[in-house]
């Protein structure tokens, strides 16, 4: 009896370890894979890349909406940096959402429809643990990233080709760049 107790214990411990390590690592692996595929398509770090209009032929992620246009910016704040995110103004639904390397949507900022076209919207993303910036220096929303790597995604409603052309125009004002402090 004693001879089989130890192997059974080791088996159960191995099953549990394999189960929970896989469970924990799967979203991270899927997110890293998505970022790598973006890099292969030429999407640079700290730069918004406007996707072509979503069609079956252009889809790159699962379940994309053909009615929304996506701009994506991969970030890596391993140097404890701060990222300044600017979203160009748009006359219909738009939002900017932040995803950590575990796929959590840790923040979403709605962009006012018909807001001041000159200003757009500016948001600061800080590396994990980094102190907030002086609000006198930067008055926009400040968000602390839970992980150093992740993705920022702007969604804009554009169900027609004409609306997509409008997005192309306003997306020229989007930016996602490291702040030099």
């Amino acid at each position: 009896m004693k001879r089989i107790v130890a192997p059974i214990f080791v088996l159960l411990a191995s099953i549990l370890t394999g189960h929970f390590v896989t469970l924990h690592m799967t979203p991270v692996a899927i997110m890293k894979n998505a970022i790598e595929r973006l890099e292969e398509r030429g999407v640079a770090l700290h730069e918004f890349n406007l996707a072509p209009r979503t069609t079956p032929q252009t889809q790159t992620v699962v379940r994309p909406s053909p009615d929304l246009v996506y701009s994506i910016c991969p970030f890596d704040l391993s140097g404890n940096q701060v990222l300044a995110v600017r979203v160009g103004p748009y006359d219909d639904y738009s939002s900017v959402s932040f995803f950590d390397i575990r796929t959590n949507n840790f923040a979403t900022v709605r962009i006012d429809v018909g807001g001041d076209p000159a200003s757009g919207s500016e948001i600061v993303l800080r590396a994990p643990g980094r102190a907030a910036l002086d609000p006198l220096m930067f008055s926009g929303p400040q968000i602390e990233a839970p992980t150093r790597r992740g993705l920022i995604l702007i969604r804009r409603l554009a169900p027609t080709q004409a609306a997509y052309h409008e997005v192309v125009s306003t997306a020229a004002d989007d930016s996602c760049s490291l702040l030099i402090l």
């Binding site: 929970f20 979203p27 997110m31 959402s97 959590n104 949507n105 995604l153």
Partner: peptide
Amino acid sequence: GAVSANPYTRARVARHGLLALVKEE
């Protein structure tokens, strides 16, 4: 999309709905 999602939900959403938003949005 939420941080509170259990690990099974998180893995499934990563596979079937990566970059999904939280329910408030």
